[in-house]
Design a protein around this nucleic acid. Sequence first.
DNA 1: ATTTTTGCAAACCTTTTGCATGGAA
DNA 2: TTCCATGCAAAAGGTTTGCAAAAAT
Lengths: 146, 146
Amino acid sequence: MISSDAIVSAFDQAGYRVTQPRRALARLIEARAGHFTAEELLRDSRRSRLGLARATVFRSLETLTELGLIERIDLPSGEHAFVACEAAHHHHVVCSRCGRSTDVGDGGIGQVVAELARRSGYRIDSHRLELFGLCPICQTELERKH
Amino acid sequence: MISSDAIVSAFDQAGYRVTQPRRALARLIEARAGHFTAEELLRDSRRSRLGLARATVFRSLETLTELGLIERIDLPSGEHAFVACEAAHHHHVVCSRCGRSTDVGDGGIGQVVAELARRSGYRIDSHRLELFGLCPICQTELERKH
DNA sequence: ATTTTTGCAAACCTTTTGCATGGAA
DNA sequence: TTCCATGCAAAAGGTTTGCAAAAAT
């Protein structure tokens, strides 16, 4: 969950121009609770008659990724999606039912990585942990159905 | 690292036919030390005049993934690659210089996942940990250059 | 002989690029 | 007014699909 204002300010502070398409995209991202793909934003922009160009969406997503406001994740299906996130090193839990996602911190994974480095002999420079499951809301909803 | 025989047997035991293209592909996979993309196998097959069809490569990779002999990973660049692997739950360390990859076990990540589940309130069903760094061989080679 | 698998080509989908126009600073 | 960003359209990748021909059982 991230505010469109935060996105717009990030563009601004990084020296990028604050344009209408970028404002519009920021709002579309804010409106999406969970993860989203470029295609979904594009559809949203058409539906709300903002009519962003395909290239603009891709270019903005790239910039936002560089700025660290969103992060690209790979869903189990192989799709490329993005999630809004905080800058510090962290990981995401993604709900496989509704797509909502939450940042989680380190959780002690540093030790695990160190252990695996020792075991494999590799010098590990980066890692990516992606977690998939059911968010609290979806858990409740599913229970209610029984 | 996996033998082409193991791949061929896997096709056989799963009830798939053992065909020339599948044998050829098995050898190409065996020949690749690290990870590989569909495109790379396709190039290899042209270079060695095996002339596998694009569709055959994709279809075989899909089957092998279902059989659990290879696993699809997402490189930091966003490329889709595959690595040969054992069936049990595990993770991969991928060398960002040469592409070699090694299976590593759990390394205690179960506890980390449990901790992150507790913290986020999600019910975590699956996770994916990808590690990137330098393999022992590349470490040695880089040191030699100094 | 039967059924699966292949090869080909075309379709499809996602992402990138070049360039003229329009908008922000 | 000067650059940066956009839109468009085309190109570029990567992956999938339908179907007739070929190969495996």
